[in-house]
Design a protein around this nucleic acid. Structure first.
Lengths: 220, 220
DNA sequence: TACACCATCGGGGGAACCCCTGATCGCGCC
DNA sequence: GGCGCGATCAGGGGTTCCCCCGATGGTGTA
C-alpha cells in the first residue's frame, strides 16, 4: 500500500467533457497532483499505463464502453497495486451504481459533490477505503444481499413464454427433465419441447450453457 | 416507507450483555424511542414480531446463531416494510462484515462509535440509507466485485485431489466429458473416473448439482 | 373463418452422462 | 516386500439429454 508520494496523491481525470475536467482540476487545486486527463476509454487505459496514477476519477458514461470498460481492461497484474477507481457521475441510478461498483470501483460519488468533499473522497480512495454516499450505498447492499435483481438485460428473457420461463428456471437450477415434469405436472415430452424452444430462443446449445447463462444473469 | 412516528424512531437493542444494552440506551437518551431489548436470537425474533421496531441494533456475535440468524428468520412478508437492521459489533473482521451485510443488514458500525454518531446511523438506517464505515465498506465492495473469495467453507474441496479439482472446475463450467478429456490430454474414461470420485466426495449426484455447488462457492 | 401462437403429448435415435467392475503403473510408507 | 493411494484406462449398461419428425386443442387476431 501507500504508493502515495510526499508531494500529493497522483490523480487521473477521465471525462468526455473538457469543461468538466477543467472544473475538477480547478477545484482540486494543489491539494492533489493531477498527472493527466483522458476523454474516452482508450485514452484512459493508455494514460493509466503511462502515468500510473494512485486514483482515477472516472466518468460512468463514456465514449467507447463506459467507465466500467476501463476497469475491465486493467491487466490482472494491476489488481493488487493498481490505481483505485472513483466513479464520478451525474447518474444516481441503481444500475449505474451497482454496475460500476461490480466492475471494481472503490467509490461512487455524484457530480453534485463539493471540492473539499471530492478531495476527501480521493484521499480515502487512495487508502483503499470505500467512498459511496449512504443513499447510493443502499443500492449496493441490496444487490449484494440479493434483494433486487440486476434485471435490465432481459430482452432475451422477454421472448420466452411464461411456461418456458418456468421450465428454464428449474432446468437452470439443475433439475432433471423428469423432475421438472413432476414439478409442473406435465409430461417429460412437454418439458423437452419447452427446453428446445428455450435453447433456440436464447441461442444456447445445452443445459450446461443455460445454467451459466442464468447464473450470470442471477436468475437462480 | 416513513413508518417513523412523530415521537421518534422505534428501536430494538439486541445484545447478550445487559450492561452494554444499558449503555446504548443511556447514550441514545430521548433522541429515539427504545421499545425493547433482547439478549439472544429467539428473544430478538419475538421482540421484532411484538414491537415492530423501525430499526434493530444487532450484535453480530449472539447466542443462538448470531445476528445473521435473526435476519434470516424474518418472514418474507417483512422484506419490504420490516425493520432495518444495523449491526453493532466489536469485530471489524472482513468475514463478519461481509456475512452480516449479505444477510441483509443496512449498516455495520463498530462499538467504538460515539453516541451522536450512532443516533445519526439509526436515523439514516430508518430512511433505508446504508451506514458502513469507509474502512469496512471496502470489504463489502471487494466481496461484491468478486476480488476476494468468501473462502472458508473448503473442507469438502480439500478432500479432492489436484487432478480431481481440475476436472471438477472444467465440468462445472459446462465442459462435456469429451472436451475435458481433450483439454487435459487424458481419455474420456479417466474423466469419468475422476468425476465419479468428485461427485462421491462432494456428495452430489450429477454434474448439474456440481454446477450449482461450484457457483454457490464462486469457484468458476 | 383462417391463421398464428401456445401448451400439451408421442416415437425414435444418437450422443452424453453416470455407475459398476475390473485392470496397470508409480509413489511413499512401515 | 507388502500396502494404500492416486492417476490412468477399458467394457458394459441403464439413464438422461437433445433433436428430428409428427399430432391435438385452445386462444387471440386479422
Amino acid at each position: 500500500m501507500s504508493t502515495a508520494p510526499r508531494g500529493g496523491i497522483r490523480v487521473l481525470i477521465v471525462d468526455d467533457h473538457a469543461m468538466f475536467r477543467a472544473g475538477v482540476r480547478a477545484e482540486l487545486g494543489s491539494t492533489v497532483d493531477v498527472v493527466a486527463e483522458a476523454a474516452d476509454v482508450d485514452e484512459a487505459v493508455a494514460a493509466i499505463a503511462e502515468h500510473k496514477p494512485d486514483v482515477v476519477l472516472l466518468d460512468v458514461h463514456l465514449p467507447g464502453g463506459g467507465g466500467a470498460e476501463v476497469m475491465r481492461r486493467m491487466p490482472p497484474a494491476m489488481a493488487a497495486d493498481g490505481p483505485r477507481f472513483l466513479a464520478l457521475s451525474v447518474s444516481d441510478a441503481a444500475e449505474d451504481v451497482i454496475g460500476t461498483i461490480r466492475a471494481g470501483a472503490r467509490g461512487y460519488v455524484t457530480k453534485t459533490i463539493t471540492g473539499p468533499e471530492l478531495v476527501d473522497a480521493i484521499k480515502r480512495g487512495s487508502e483503499n477505503d470505500a467512498v459511496v454516499s449512504p443513499r447510493l450505498a443502499g443500492f449496493v447492499l441490496d444487490a449484494f444481499a440479493g434483494t433486487i435483481e440486476i434485471s435490465a438485460v432481459d430482452e432475451d428473457l422477454d421472448r420466452l413464454t411464461e411456461r418456458e420461463r418456468e421450465v428454464m428456471r428449474l432446468i437452470a437450477r439443475g433439475y432433471a427433465y423428469k423432475e421438472v415434469a413432476r414439478e409442473l405436472f406435465i409430461s417429460i415430452k412437454t418439458v423437452e419441447t419447452h427446453m428446445s424452444s428455450v435453447l433456440r430462443k436464447l441461442q444456447l446449445s445445452s443445459r450446461h450453457e443455460l445454467t451459466r447463462w442464468a447464473s450470470d444473469r442471477r436468475l437462480l
